[in-house]
């Protein structure tokens, strides 16, 4: 915790950001539905090889953003690039991205084997051996009709179809929602195994932060259609300090400290600080920053933001 300011000024990815294109780059991305903006001027990047969490409350624009990343939705303005290529209806571009939608769509009348055949005929780099091995390890019978599988098994089949496509970027919309704790654990484990095996980049959305702590190393926080935070999770945790003190003195204290975000509950105020600072008086205590606290404090303070240096976004 001592060398906080060094870490905050030198994110460890900076050395690579000038060369290889980011796995994902959004620039000024906006989507308008009739009058409401689902996403407004979102700019962020996810470097290649990361497992990125897209976090935000319900209705914050996560699904809209993911749909634009996979080409199901066209942006009103701005653009999304995947490995430097603008997302569009092009076989080569589409083959680099796989998507598992929130409701885990599969063809009800298909058997598991037919779902694999679907993946095979629809994708040039399909890895049938990998798909069969995954399902075999998970104990999912190939002859079983998809509609007769449990929710967890359906998610696993959907994930298998997505992973065996051999995408460079795997996009998952709330992959763990609707699953019981055991199934959550199994899905997470098999996802991480696939990531380790294929070295693909992953972007997954969730509104449950604790699920992400052990899985993800990049964080994007979306709030009310705007990107609030984007960065390496270790860097974010290291560069922030959380101090707690009385709510009535918070105004004056905040004026003297590098406050990134703040929230108040009852008589207690929580300040999320960027960089080092000495505590004003003994009534204020520092707490270790947990990912959950960091996310929640930013979400409660929609005007605050922690966005990467412009070099990360304009890496290409």
């Amino acid at each position: 915790m001592k060398d906080v300011h060094q870490l905050s000024s030198a994110p460890r990815r900076e050395s690579t950001s000038g060369q290889a294109p980011n796995a994902l780059e959004a620039t000024g991305l906006s989507k308008q539905y009739r009058k409401a903006w689902a996403l407004r001027n979102a700019s962020f990047a996810v470097p290649a090889g990361r497992v990125a969490a897209l976090v935000g409350p319900n209705g914050s624009g996560k699904t809209t953003l993911l749909n634009m990343v996979v080409g199901l939705l066209s942006p009103t303005s701005g653009e999304v690039r995947v490995f430097g290529e603008t997302v569009r209806q092009d076989a080569e571009v589409l083959s680099r991205v796989a998507f598992l939608a929130q409701d885990k769509p599969l063809y009800d009348s298909f058997t598991v084997a037919e779902m694999l055949k679907f993946g095979r005929v629809m994708n040039p780099r399909w890895d049938d051996e990998m798909a069969r091995r995954r399902l075999d390890e998970l104990g999912i019978p190939l002859k079983r009709n998809v509609s007769r599988l449990s929710g967890g098994q359906q998610t696993q089949v959907g994930l298998t179809v997505a992973v065996a496509k051999r995408p460079h970027l795997l996009v998952l919309d709330e992959p763990l929602a609707d699953l019981d704790p055991v199934a959550r654990h199994e899905v997470t484990t098999s996802l991480m195994a696939a990531v380790a095996e294929t070295a693909m980049t992953v972007l997954l959305s969730s509104h449950v932060v604790p699920d992400l702590v052990d899985t993800c190393d990049w964080l994007v926080v979306l709030n009310g259609g705007r990107v609030q935070v984007s960065g390496d999770i270790d860097d974010l945790l290291a560069s922030h300090r959380m101090v707690v003190g009385p709510a009535d003195g918070a105004e004056t204290v905040a004026g003297r400290l590098p406050v990134a975000a703040r929230s108040t509950s009852g008589r207690q105020a929580t300040l999320l600080l960027r960089g080092p600072a000495s505590l004003p008086d003994p009534r204020w205590t520092e707490r270790p920053v947990r990912l959950e606290d960091l996310v929640l404090t930013y979400l409660r303070d929609p005007d605050a933001s922690a966005l990467p240096a412009p070099s990360l976004i304009r890496a290409h």
Binding site: L72, Q89, A91, F99, A101, P105, N123, K165
Partner: peptide, 17 residues
Amino acid sequence: ERGTFRLAWTQSVPTKR
């Protein structure tokens, strides 16, 4: 209706095709 367009149209075959 069944949401399977999110599966069908995110494979390597463009929707037009």
